[in-house]
């Protein structure tokens, strides 16, 4: 889990937890009061941490913010020597590789989650769920290694020539097969997103009340009809939320992407061509950024990324929270 998601989760949890501590007023012993205040302090500390981080980023990015302003977002030139900075190639690389990852990981995660939640026999379910969690624990750098030594050659020698041959009429699949590039980054990100998306989608599907399934089964619906008409529509917001969580993870992933995306700040429609991403430009250039404006521009990118991931994670949490509210509202009817 990337730090932003962690902070947000901690912030929400801390807020709720702190709220409970403030509203319960039963403790009269001094020790209890002390302990309560102490925990409130911890909860607030997490909240402050996020604020301080945002503020620090904002302050450090000031030179770039003042000099380039909003045009920084759509500027296409990145030239540290002549002090020209525009983030568009990086934003483009991040967005395209992330969306590609989501397009690949979405159907797979949804299918896996439906199988795990609806069809898998009890024993197999536990094993598969464990494997899914195991995948989530593999460090990004390992995926990156696999990506550059196994995936990229495979793409260069097999998949990309094949795609170019049969789907080459689409601009997406034109150009020489490099192996390393947007497609490789998208695939690696998809593999990294699948565990979290599958796990959350499965949890979301499992909160759909049994009555919803039984109502359709009692009509003589087949298992597939039950999934399509009762389970998926009921859990829609939660599923979208799970996908947004995957999106948040993909946006922030750094090492694996840096190793396979090619690190060339180009905007090309072709998925075969090397590109760059917001995270990889920071990790590549941070150590060499000797000029203050160069450093500020990198932090400016960090600030943008912080904003995007925060927004994505808030949307994800809100959608999942809304599903929870819907379930409890319908439980009240019952």
């Amino acid at each position: 889990m990337d730090p932003c998601a962690c902070c947000l989760r901690a912030f929400i949890f801390g807020g709720v937890f702190g709220g409970i501590l403030i509203t319960t007023n039963r403790a009269t012993y001094p020790g209890d009061t002390f302990f309560r205040r102490l925990t409130i302090l911890f909860a607030l500390a997490l909240f402050l941490l996020v604020l301080v981080m945002a503020f620090q980023l904002y302050r450090e990015a000031q030179p770039s913010l003042q000099r380039f302003g909003w045009p920084f977002v759509w500027g296409r030139e990145w030239d540290p020597v002549h002090e020209k900075f525009g983030a568009l190639p990086y934003i483009y690389g991040t967005l395209v590789s992330t969306l590609l990852a989501l397009a690949l990981a979405g159907p797979i995660s949804l299918g896996a989650a439906v199988y795990l939640a609806e069809f898998a026999p009890r024993r197999l379910k536990a094993t598969l769920a464990f494997l899914v969690d195991l995948l989530a624990g593999i460090p990004g750098i390992v995926y990156g290694l696999w990506g550059s030594f196994v995936l990229a050659p495979f793409l260069r020698n097999c998949l990309e020539p094949w795609l170019g041959k049969y789907l080459g009429f689409l601009p997406l699949f034109q150009g020489p097969p490099f192996g390393i590039g947007l497609l490789a980054a998208g695939i690696i990100l998809a593999i990294m997103c699948i565990p979290v998306m599958t796990a959350v989608t499965r949890e979301v599907l499992e909160v759909v009340p049994a009555g919803q399934r039984e109502a359709l089964l009692a009509f003589g619906a087949t298992p597939w009809e039950v999934v399509r008409l009762a389970v998926l529509p009921y859990a829609r917001e939660g599923i979208i939320g799970a996908f947004f969580l995957g999106l948040g993870k993909a946006l922030g992933e750094t090492l694996a992407v840096t190793m396979v995306i090619g690190n060339r700040p180009e905007i090309s429609l072709s998925l075969f061509s090397p590109a760059h991403s917001m995270t990889s430009v920071i990790v590549n250039e941070f150590a060499q950024a000797v000029k203050a404006i160069h450093l500020a521009a990198l932090i400016h990118i960090g600030l943008l990324l912080f904003g995007i991931t925060l927004l994505v994670n808030i949307i994800a949490r809100l959608l999942i929270y809304r599903l929870g509210r819907k379930v409890s509202r319908w439980k009240q009817v019952e």
Binding site: P209, G211, Q212, E214, A215, L217, A218, F219, G220, A221, T222, L229, A230, P233, Y234, R236, K326, W330, V333, E334
Partner: peptide
């Protein structure tokens, strides 16, 4: 076939489990 049986024998549940998305 269970599907045929369930189509001929309808069931009303304790909880009014309407489909909220419909």
């Amino acid at each position: 076939n269970p599907i045929e049986v369930r189509r001929r024998v309808g069931m009303i549940f304790q909880t009014p489990n309407v489909f909220p998305a419909m």
